[in-house]
C-alpha cells in the first residue's frame, strides 16, 4: 500500500486527473481488495490508454530559455524532446518510466545549493544562479545509452565537470569524485516510501575516478533542448558522462565530494553482480539478464520511430579508451 504523507507539493495533486487512471497498473493489485474482478481488469487496462486524454491537466514545471554556445556536432537524428522528457529513470519520483514526469512537476529547484567539498583546498558553494552563470554554457549533443539496452540522442547544455573541480583545487591525494542527489523525502515520494522508490537506500550516490571526471566529455548539465532541465531529467543540475551507462549520470546533484577512497555507488550496492562502478558502455560484456550487443534507439513515441542498432564500445566515444588501457573491462564492468 502506498501511503503518501501530505507535503507542500501535494497541493498540486488535487488538480491531477483521477489517481487510478494515472498510476494505472501499479495500483491494480492494491485495488483487488476493494473492487470486483471485472473492475480490476478494466481499470488496469484503461489506465494507460486514458492517460492520453488527461495529460493536459498536469501542472507543468516552468523551464527557462538559456543562452549558450550552440553545438555544431551532427548526430542526426535527435530524439524528440517530448520523449526524452517523459521516459525517465528517476526512482526518487517512482520506478515506472512515466512516474517522474507525473510526480516531479512541483519540484523546487530554486533555491538550490551545490557544494564541492572533501579533499579540496577551496570548497565551493554554488547557488541556483551560480549554476547557470558561473561557467560559460555550451551545447553538447550526446548519445545516451541506458543499461537497459535503449538509447536516445539528447542536446544537453552545461559546462565541463573538470572546470568545476579545478575551481575547488583538489588535493594531490584525491583520487575519486563522489556525487550525491538531493535527499528530500518531502518532495521525493520515492524517498518517502520504499515501495515507491524501489527499495533503494537514498540519497543516490555515484562516483567517477578523478581522471574520468577531468575528461572534457564529462559535463555538468543544467539544460536540454535549449532550455533549463525539467525535474524529471535532473533539474537544476546533473552529471552527463556519455561513454557510461545512463545510471552513472546522476540527477539533481547537491554534493560533489573528492576523496581518496572509491565509493560504493547506489546500483553497485543494490545488485553488485549486475552493475559495477565503471559501467562503461561495452557491447562485449552482457548484463547477466540481457545482451548489451545492440540497442534500441528511441527517436520518437511511435513504434515506427525505434531503430535497432549496434552498441558501440564506449558508446562511440573512443577518445576515452586511454583512460582504461590498463584495466580489464570484463571484470571491471
Amino acid at each position: 500500500m502506498i501511503i503518501k504523507t501530505p507535503s507542500k507539493n501535494a497541493a498540486h495533486e488535487h488538480e491531477v486527473t483521477d489517481q487510478a487512471v494515472y498510476q494505472g497498473r501499479r495500483k491494480v493489485l492494491k485495488q483487488l481488495g476493494y473492487t470486483g474482478a471485472l473492475a480490476l481488469l478494466s481499470q488496469s487496462a484503461q489506465a494507460n490508454p486514458f492517460k492520453w486524454f488527461s495529460d493536459d491537466d498536469t501542472p507543468t514545471f516552468k523551464r527557462n530559455p538559456l543562452s549558450f554556445e550552440k553545438s555544431d556536432a551532427l548526430i542526426n537524428p535527435m530524439t524528440q524532446e517530448g520523449v526524452a522528457t517523459s521516459y525517465n529513470n528517476f526512482f526518487e519520483f517512482g520506478t515506472s518510466k512515466n512516474d517522474p514526469v507525473e510526480n516531479a512537476q512541483g519540484f523546487v529547484v530554486n533555491p538550490w545549493q551545490l557544494e564541492v567539498t572533501g579533499m579540496v583546498e577551496n570548497p565551493i558553494k554554488l547557488d541556483y544562479d551560480d549554476l547557470l552563470k558561473r561557467f560559460p554554457l555550451q551545447e553538447r549533443i550526446y548519445r545516451l545509452r541506458c543499461v537497459e539496452a535503449w538509447s536516445m540522442v539528447i542536446p544537453w547544455i552545461g559546462f565541463e565537470l573538470g572546470a568545476l573541480i579545478k575551481a575547488a583545487n583538489p588535493l594531490g591525494s584525491a583520487k575519486y569524485v563522489i556525487f550525491e542527489t538531493l535527499n528530500d523525502p518531502a518532495q521525493m515520494p520515492g524517498q518517502r516510501s520504499r515501495f515507491v522508490g524501489g527499495g533503494i537506500d537514498y540519497p543516490y550516490v555515484e562516483g567517477l575516478r578523478l581522471d574520468e571526471a577531468y575528461h572534457p566529455l564529462a559535463i555538468m548539465s543544467v539544460g536540454m533542448y535549449g532550455q533549463t532541465l525539467p525535474p524529471q531529467n535532473g533539474a537544476p543540475i546533473r552529471l552527463v558522462v556519455p561513454w557510461k551507462y545512463g545510471f552513472k549520470s546522476i540527477k539533481s546533484v547537491v554534493k560533489i565530494r573528492l576523496s581518496d577512497k572509491r565509493p560504493k555507488t547506489t546500483w553497485e550496492l543494490l545488485a553488485p553482480n549486475e552493475y559495477g562502478f565503471y559501467a562503461n558502455v561495452n557491447p562485449e560484456v552482457d548484463h547477466p539478464r540481457w545482451s548489451q550487443a545492440r540497442e534500441r534507439r528511441i527517436l520518437g513515441s511511435k513504434l515506427s520511430e525505434q531503430r535497432r542498432i549496434d552498441t558501440m564500445m564506449f558508446n562511440g566515444y573512443d577518445e576515452v579508451a586511454s583512460l582504461y588501457s590498463s584495466l580489464d573491462l570484463r571484470s571491471n564492468y
Binding site: N48, P49, K51, W52, D55, G82, V83, S86, Y87, N88, K97, N98, V101, W150, R296, I298, G300, S301, K302, L303, S304, E305, Q306
Partner: peptide
C-alpha cells in the same frame, strides 16, 4: 496508441 505515438515515453516498453 503505441503505433500512433499517443503514449508518453517509450511505446515498446
Amino acid at each position: 496508441n503505441a503505433i500512433n505515438g499517443n503514449v508518453s515515453g517509450d511505446p515498446v516498453q
